[in-house]
Simulated scan of single mutants.
Amino acid sequence: MRENALMATVEILRTDITTLAVDAVVNAANSSLAGGGGVDRAIHRAAGPTLDVECRTLRQTRYRAGLATGAAVATSAGRMPAKWVIHTVGPIWDGSGHQDGLLANCYRHSIAVADEVGAYSIAFPCISAGVYGYPIDRASRVAVTTCRQARPDIVNRIILVAYDDRAEKALQAAMAES
């Protein structure tokens, strides 16, 4: 990490994450990297068959047991305008709040992988706030806090993508609190 690293700028956009012309888009993946629902499905559809092939190769080589919760790995972005897709597996909400550290790791490790591949900009969905059941307000606070504390070497722009009004309001409230 560079000496006296500056924090990256963090912003909120309400848009379709698959259309962003950023260096890296984060995929809220499942551990098998096989494509699932929500953002994962949208990213796999937008990226096309190249992404499926790369994910299959990862499953057959480095991640035979699956990608661990909070870990992150990069692939190309196929037909999307982004250069890379960074896959991370968020925790499934169990009502206890003990998974906040794992959720924060999704953001930290994705930013670290973005640094490794040379990405200047990265866009995140609201990880775990869909089918994994994390409350959107809590997930937004973890996302904003973690991204604002990040001190990447290369990444200088972090976009938190809101998929609807509720997510946008939750992210804006978290930004105002931090």
Rank of each mutant, 00 (worst) to 15 (best):
M1K: 15
R2E: 10
E3N: 07
V10C: 09
E11L: 06
L13M: 14
R14E: 13
I17N: 04
T18F: 08
T18N: 11
V25E: 01
N27S: 02
S31C: 03
L33D: 06
A34E: 14
G35M: 09
V39C: 12
H44S: 04
H44P: 06
R45M: 11
G48E: 08
P49F: 13
Q60D: 08
T61I: 00
Y63D: 03
R64P: 07
R64Q: 10
A65I: 04
A65G: 08
A65L: 10
A68E: 07
A68Y: 01
T69A: 15
A72L: 13
A74G: 02
A74M: 02
T75N: 06
M80F: 09
K83Q: 13
W84C: 00
H87Q: 10
G90M: 12
I92V: 15
G95V: 06
G95E: 04
G97C: 02
H98M: 04
D100W: 02
L102K: 15
H109T: 14
I111M: 01
I111A: 00
A112L: 10
D115W: 11
G118S: 04
A119Q: 06
A119I: 05
I122W: 11
F124W: 09
C126R: 05
G130N: 09
G133P: 09
D137P: 07
T145Y: 04
C147M: 11
I154A: 05
N156G: 04
I159Q: 12
L160P: 12
V161R: 03
K169V: 13
K169P: 03
L171G: 03
Q172K: 14
Q172P: 01
Q172N: 13
A174S: 09
A176V: 04
E177N: 05
